[in-house]
C-alpha cells in the first residue's frame, strides 16, 4: 500500500549555516514506527539528491515521535550567501512530507 508522509506526519525545517534541518513528527505511535522503518538515511539522501550534496544525519526523538534529519551542503552556501529563493530551507519539511512510501500491509 502506498501512503504519503504528509498523511501520517507533520514537521518543520530550517537552517544552520549551509545545513538544513528537517524535523518530521508522526501523529501517532504507529506513524512513528513507519517513519523509523522507512525513512532511513539512505532513502532521504537519495530523495534529496538534487538538493543535498553532503551527508545526511538522522536522529530519533521517541518522546515526541519525531525524526530529525540534518542535510549537509543543502542550502547553496547558507542563509546569507545562498542565491536560493528559499535560502533557509523553510520549505524542505513539506518537500519531504510529499514523499510517497510503499508500506507492507497487515493481512
Amino acid at each position: 500500500m502506498k501512503i504519503r508522509l504528509i498523511d501520517i506526519a507533520h514537521g518543520r525545517s530550517g537552517d544552520k549555516g549551509d545545513s538544513a534541518n528537517i524535523g518530521i513528527i508522526a501523529y501517532d505511535d504507529k506513524g512513528y514506527e513507519l517513519l523509523k522503518k522507512y525513512l532511513t538515511v539512505d532513502v532521504v539522501k537519495k530523495y534529496f539528491q538534487g538538493i543535498c550534496f553532503g551527508e545526511v544525519e538522522r536522529y530519533e526523538m521517541p518522546n515526541i515521535r519525531a525524526l530529525n534529519f540534518i542535510l549537509h551542503n543543502a542550502l547553496g552556501g547558507g542563509g546569507t550567501v545562498s542565491l536560493k529563493h528559499d535560502a533557509q530551507g523553510k520549505t524542505l519539511a513539506s518537500a519531504l512530507l510529499r514523499m510517497e512510501i510503499e508500506i507492507e500491509t497487515e493481512k
Binding site: 507533520h10 530550517g14 524535523g23 518530521i24 501523529y27 536522529y59 526523538m61 515526541i64 519525531a66 530529525n68
Partner: peptide, 17 residues
C-alpha cells in the same frame, strides 16, 4: 498543543541529545 510545541522543538536543532 503538543503538535504546535513539538514543531518548534525540532526547529533548527542538530543532534537532539
Amino acid at each position: 498543543s503538543i503538535e504546535t510545541v513539538s514543531e518548534q522543538l525540532v526547529y533548527e536543532i542538530g543532534d537532539p541529545t
